[in-house]
Simulated assay, not measured.
Amino acid sequence: MTDRLDDHEGRDPGTLHAELGAQLDQAAKEVVRRMADGVSYEVAHQAVAAAYQRLAGHAQVHNFLPILAARSAQNALERGDLHRASGHGLPDQKS
Rank of each mutant, 00 (worst) to 15 (best):
A70C: 05
H62L: 13
L16A: 07
L55W: 07
D3S: 09
Q60S: 02
T15W: 00
E42D: 02
Q74G: 01
Y52T: 06
D3N: 07
A85I: 01
L90E: 08
A36Q: 15
L65N: 00
L65C: 00
E42G: 05
G38C: 10
Q53F: 15
Y41R: 08
H62S: 06
L16T: 14
D25K: 09
V43Q: 07
D7A: 08
E19S: 10
R71P: 00
Q53A: 13
R84F: 08
V31H: 06
R54Y: 07
P66Y: 01
I67F: 12
L90S: 11
A76I: 12
M35Y: 02
L68S: 02
D37P: 11
R71T: 14
A44G: 00
D81Q: 02
Q74F: 01
L82D: 15
D3K: 10
S40L: 10
G57A: 06
L82A: 13
R4T: 13
Q93T: 14
Q46C: 10
S40F: 10
H45V: 05
A70E: 05
N75Q: 14
G21I: 11
L65D: 01
E9I: 10
P91V: 15
D6S: 09
R71F: 11
V43A: 01
H58D: 08
A69H: 03
E30Y: 10
A59P: 05
L77D: 03
T15M: 10
A76H: 07
A59E: 04
A18G: 02
A69K: 01
T2Y: 09
V48A: 02
H17V: 13
R4F: 13
L82K: 05
L65H: 05
H88P: 00
K29D: 12
D81L: 10
G38Q: 12
V31G: 04
T15A: 07
Y41F: 14
R33L: 09
A85P: 02
H83T: 14
L24Y: 03
G89P: 00
Q23N: 13
L68P: 05
R54A: 06
P66M: 01
G38N: 11
H88I: 00
Q93I: 15
